[in-house]
Simulated scan of single mutants.
Amino acid sequence: MRVIVDAMGGDNAPLEIVKGCAAAVGELGVEILLYGDRDKLDGIFDGTGLSREGITVIHAPDVIEMEDDPGISIRSKKNSSMVMALTALAAGEGDAFVTAGSTGAALAGATLIVKRIKGVKRAALAPLLPGKKGPVLLIDCGANVECKPEYLEQFGVMGSVYMDKIVGVKNPRVGLINIGTEPTKGGDLQREAHRLLGESKANFVGNIEPREIMMGACDVAVADGFTGNVVLKTIEGMAKFFTSALKDLFYESLVTKLSALGVKKGLARFKKTMDYKETGGAPFIGVSKPVIKAHGSSDARSFCSAIRQAKIYAESGMIEQIAEYYSVTSEKK
């Protein structure tokens, strides 16, 4: 398995990216093609003593910065680490791509260079959220701020394939995020998406309110990118709040500190469940090859997890299944 990596993207690049890649080679047995400034990357290897085994450095002198316009930078910065890496993926030089860089640029590059699966109208960014009854896939969480009903229908179908192939959930339940459970709730987008999802291949269970997502109301939560991003960031904020509040509670007095010892293992499991570093990143579902967006603030452990996710994604066969589904669907029309 050969994973292509953008070494220069993210808040902690390139040091933590290089550390994560070295860990992935040792833990996952993957080969890494590392795109970035050769002098900086060589300096990291020499300065830290990290092994270069399994890692090939390819010089890419430019960087797409977070403030750069995604579409313009993908077209103009041909020698950037992200563009060169995505071009290599499109050419078949690797099996998957991982970046902690600009989400907008990664989506633009994946769409323009790697291309979407034939029949897929829009690629969607889809993170896994922790849930009471198991993980929940949120699709989309920001790639498509403005959507059409048919996009949401495809998100539901593609999300179902992901949960089946990657997570192992058979016949996953698909819910449409809305302000109420009745089919008439929401605007024109939600009402028409509700109708299309009900007629689709997906196991559609109807509208779900945001408060029910993590309580197990569905396995795939479908939304337009604006709504999904608000939901995701609200959940992230609440997770930080609860973790901080619990810590403050158990450090209030000697009695609470002693009580904390009794639930220490349970608290550790809770913290791990809410930690994005365990997942590492989110895939752009609908792209013709695996493209994983790692968290912008990824450290070495988080980036290694993102590479693990890329490996699983590439080996799952889900892209081929989605391509086959839309090929058959197209023939029937």
Rank of each mutant, 00 (worst) to 15 (best):
H194Q: 05
T87H: 01
G266L: 02
L267D: 04
V220F: 14
G9Q: 01
V287R: 03
G101Q: 01
S102G: 11
S288Y: 02
I58P: 00
A90G: 02
R269Q: 14
E212W: 06
H295K: 06
G187T: 06
S316D: 08
V18G: 13
D42W: 06
I117K: 04
S330M: 13
M82V: 00
E16Y: 08
S298G: 07
S316N: 09
M1D: 08
D248V: 09
I44V: 15
Y162C: 15
E31C: 07
A245F: 15
K133M: 12
M274D: 06
I312P: 04
I55M: 08
V145T: 14
R191P: 10
V157E: 15
G262H: 03
S160W: 06
M84H: 02
L112P: 02
K78M: 01
K277V: 05
I139F: 04
K133N: 15
I72K: 15
A193K: 07
C141F: 03
I117M: 07
R195Y: 14
T103F: 00
N79I: 00
A314C: 03
H295T: 03
G159K: 09
A239L: 07
G168V: 07
V18H: 13
L152M: 08
S259G: 13
K201H: 12
D42Q: 12
M66I: 07
G20R: 05
I235C: 05
I322C: 07
R2S: 09
V287M: 10
A323L: 08
K115F: 02
S80T: 00
F303N: 03
E212P: 02
L261D: 08
I292K: 11
I32G: 02
R173G: 09
E315P: 02
G47H: 04
E153Q: 14
K201D: 12
T56R: 14
G36N: 00
M66C: 03
V3T: 01
E27D: 13
F242V: 13
Y276A: 12
G54S: 12
S244P: 05
P210I: 06
D164H: 14
C147K: 09
E67N: 13
